[in-house]
Simulated assay, not measured.
Amino acid sequence: MATTFSIVIPTQNRAGLLARVVRAFLEQEGVSFELIVVDDGSTDATPEALEALKDPRLLVLRQPNRGLAQARNAGLARARGAYVLFNDDDVVPEEGFLQAHLELHRRYPAAAAVSRLYLPESLGQHPFVRYWRARMESGVRGRPDGAPLGWGGFWFASLSLPRALAEAFAPFAGYGWEEHELGWRLWRKGVRPRLARKARAAHEDRVGLEAALAKQESMGRMAWRFYRLHPHPLVALWTGVHPLSRAYKRLAYPWARAEQLLRERAWEEAPGASGRYRFLLEAAYTRGLLEGAPG
């Protein structure tokens, strides 16, 4: 029987959560698939956790720590399905997930299907978690199944596309823009991301403000890597590397103001916290963008 989906899951040191994700995929029904887990140099109990999940559909690849892009590329190189689905090791699919992806591909043969992710209530109700939950939903709220998401809609935390259209990820030295860079290449080939609304998955992302700020700062630095790969005016504006964008951001999101907000955190429980969270994330991105600018 031909394999419909090759599911590629890169992982590092998330043994317990990874086991939940793998089990949730192995319970999917109605669609043939292979599950390729790429262990990117884990030092925890990941090998033992995977060994316990004996299933002929599960293939485990192990490599020294090379980063997310190289792990995904290793999985892609072994994929044999008609479609490849990249799924992070903290994204737990619900029942009917693969079937929903397949239905969208049948409707839109040259599309990339983007899963509908949500932050589960089990992650708590801290003000920043509530903000992050609302932010995640804002991009898809009210959109129907199959809705186009634009060139920024490639979200490889959980996304599938025809294997014949898939390309390798370009490695970045830090967090940020890796997925969008590949999305830019796919967009220019005519691949359009569309929302697979019925492909729901819990994103078990235990994000905190400090971790989010560190990611945003790294993303600002990595914007230059994206632009060097694609020195296009739209990329310059999108990433903020354009001189006018940088000048605006320097004035609008001063890091000194961010430091003040981080010292005095009582505002988190007050009305208007969402606006301050947005400012902090933009300020962190701007800080990385300015620090990463070529001398």
Rank of each mutant, 00 (worst) to 15 (best):
T3S: 03
T3A: 06
F5D: 01
S6R: 04
V8G: 09
P10A: 05
T11A: 13
Q12V: 08
N13V: 07
L17E: 15
L18F: 11
L18H: 06
L18S: 08
R23A: 14
A24D: 10
L26H: 13
E27S: 13
Q28D: 05
E34T: 09
G41A: 07
T43H: 10
T46D: 04
P47G: 09
E48G: 03
P56K: 09
R57L: 10
L58C: 03
P64Q: 01
R66Q: 13
R72I: 06
N73G: 09
R78V: 07
A82V: 03
V84C: 08
V84T: 13
F86W: 14
N87W: 09
D88M: 02
V91R: 03
V92E: 14
P93K: 07
P93Y: 03
E95K: 12
G96C: 04
A100I: 08
L102G: 00
E103L: 08
L104N: 05
L104P: 04
P109C: 06
P109Y: 12
P109L: 09
A110R: 13
A111K: 01
V114A: 04
V114I: 15
R116M: 02
W132H: 15
R133S: 14
E137T: 03
V140A: 12
R143P: 01
R143M: 15
G146H: 05
A147T: 04
L149T: 05
W151R: 12
F154S: 06
S158P: 09
S158W: 14
L159M: 15
S160N: 09
A166W: 08
E167N: 07
F169W: 11
Y175M: 00
Y175A: 02
Y175Q: 02
W177H: 11
R185A: 14
L186G: 06
K198C: 02
K198S: 10
K198W: 12
R200D: 09
R206F: 10
V207D: 03
A211G: 14
L213Y: 04
L213Q: 06
K215V: 00
K215Y: 14
K215C: 08
E217H: 13
W224L: 06
H232P: 01
W238G: 00
T239Y: 00
T239I: 03
K249T: 05
A252Y: 04
A256C: 00
A256G: 14
Q260H: 13
E268T: 14
A270H: 13
A270F: 05
G272E: 14
L280P: 05
A283H: 10
R287P: 04
L289Q: 08
G292L: 01
